[in-house]
């Protein structure tokens, strides 16, 4: 699971949960993979990202490095920043661990990089 995916995942569908976002990450195995950098794509992606959630997720995994707390102005032309965003969004991967719903405490296991968000019928 990349932090990009974490940025999009919610547990809102759990019965009684209102927002279910962001999910807490408890990681037991985190890896950094090499992914092709495409500055145009990252520029298009950033407006769709909840940046503070990305920052906090990277920080909780010990991979925040020099990621800025806020997106700089005119980031489209700031390749240095786009590379940092690229790394946090696409290269840091949680291989094993769990996601935790911030409201219900429901845990969703992550195995081999695949989060299991499927609920039992009585939880929906």
């Amino acid at each position: 699971m990349k932090l990009l995916t974490h940025n999009m995942l919610t547990s809102k569908c759990v019965k009684g949960v209102n927002v279910g976002y962001p999910l807490t990450i408890n990681a037991s195995d985190v890896r950094v993979a090499d992914v092709d950098f495409n500055p145009d794509f990252i520029s298009r992606l950033i407006p769709k990202i909840d940046w503070p959630v990305l920052y906090n997720a990277a920080e909780s995994l010990g991979h925040v490095e020099d990621l800025p707390k806020e997106t700089p102005v005119n980031y489209e032309n700031n390749e240095e920043f786009l590379k940092k965003a690229h790394r946090a969004l696409l290269e840091v991967e949680v291989v094993h661990g769990e996601l935790v719903c911030p409201e219900s405490g429901r845990k969703f296991p992550i195995n081999n990089g695949i989060p299991n968000m499927l609920l039992n019928e009585d939880e929906v």
Binding site: M1, M8, L9, T10, C13, Y21, P115, N116, M117
Partner: peptide, 12 residues
């Protein structure tokens, strides 16, 4: 990026 879920239920 694969996630086990029903349709796109957990993706916002």
């Amino acid at each position: 990026e694969c996630t086990r879920m029903d349709l796109t239920t957990n993706l916002k």
